[in-house]
Design a protein around this nucleic acid. Structure first.
Lengths: 191, 191
DNA sequence: TAGGTGTGAGACAGACCTGTCTCACCACTG
DNA sequence: CAGTGGTGAGACAGGTCTGTCTCACACCTA
């Protein structure tokens, strides 16, 4: 039949766009550069994605899914909530040290698409909410839902802040880890 | 002599550019829109600023100076370090609630100018470092320098994270405040 | 009034942007 | 071999980008 699009090609576009968006930003990365780097025709791209914005959303959603899978895998490796949270910080520390670390793509997307009605904005909000919910679920094993939500929000803020610091070359993951321990200890014993 | 440029005009350009950058981002805001909004000629702008990048740096430095002045004024209003930090959180809470809040302009600049060698990147790093140093100085009144540096980093991360959450419409300043209290309490009594 | 100087307005250049369109090609089917 | 439908390559359109240039005007001094 030969009518189905090459399965790997769509993913190849997403991966190539991801690498360019991460390094240079969204507005600064043109379609021409994406198709040149991916070595495809422009029409191929526009047949897969109706617009650049939808490509951006797809890139974000793909990375969000990948991140969540890694998170779940990490959480299953250890037993206690403290250990699971520790694994999350470990993962971020390795990320910060990786060669092509350029900060959080979702935070960058939020910076460039600040309109709450924009699909990119919504994709970012989904990812951050999902991350927070996952940490909250972990914490609920050792504290009340209300404390867990508050602590999860604090952990998310610490991690977002640590990512920003890392992008500026200021290593602060150890401080974030210590602060997280203090927050969790405080939430465990609310008195 | 009439040879000096109108003093208020340069500042008017900076203010207008600031409002547009804040709302729409840096790459998405063109020079044409800035001069139209400021109601000036293009040559007037390029006579004051050699390039758009230098205008961006000037906007950032102006906002950084303004922020530092407000911070110092707030710190002088109260006596104890805890109260000074509390004032900083109060200030951010008011900022988050303001009508034209669109997130942290410096974080957005970092997202769009990720090259560490770029002047915009350096301007952002200066601002964040200055903010951290100020909080560290406050905390050193009640804890050792090493603990103060660690705690200041944690507070900075919490505030950056809270700003990001606020931009997504998730109010988390109260959680950040609680986490900050836990961090400071923990740093005050180490072991 | 005449001269000189800094300034504003907008045309212009050259590059880039997103998105569309045409056309040749290629594999498979009958 | 003839037909057909999906696909790749690149030209093209219309707009926007940054930055430069020309020219006329306003203002002050002598």
């Amino acid at each position: 039949m030969m009518s189905s699009p090459t399965p790997g090609k769509r993913q190849h576009i997403v991966d190539t766009a991801y690498a360019l968006f991460k390094r240079d930003g969204f507005h600064a990365t043109g379609i021409d550069r994406i198709i040149a780097e991916a070595d495809i025709a422009k029409m191929t791209m526009y047949r897969h994605f109706p617009s650049k914005d939808e490509l951006i959303v797809e890139v974000l959603e793909h990375r969000a899914l990948r991140f969540e899978r890694q998170l779940d895998r990490l959480a299953q490796e250890v037993a206690t909530p403290e250990q699971k949270i520790g694994k999350i910080f470990d993962w971020h520390e390795r990320w910060f040290r990786s060669a092509d670390f350029h900060g959080c793509l979702f935070a960058h997307a939020l910076a460039e698409f600040g309109d709450p009605g924009h699909p990119v904005f919504k994709a970012v909000a989904r990812q951050k909410n999902g991350f927070k919910q996952r940490m909250q679920s972990i914490l609920e094993k050792v504290m009340a839902p209300k404390q867990a939500e508050s602590a999860a929000a604090a952990l998310l803020m610490l991690i977002e802040g640590a990512t920003l610091m890392a992008q500026m070359g200021l290593p602060a993951i150890d401080d974030a880890r210590k602060a997280a321990a203090a927050v969790i200890a405080s939430a465990r014993t609310p008195q």
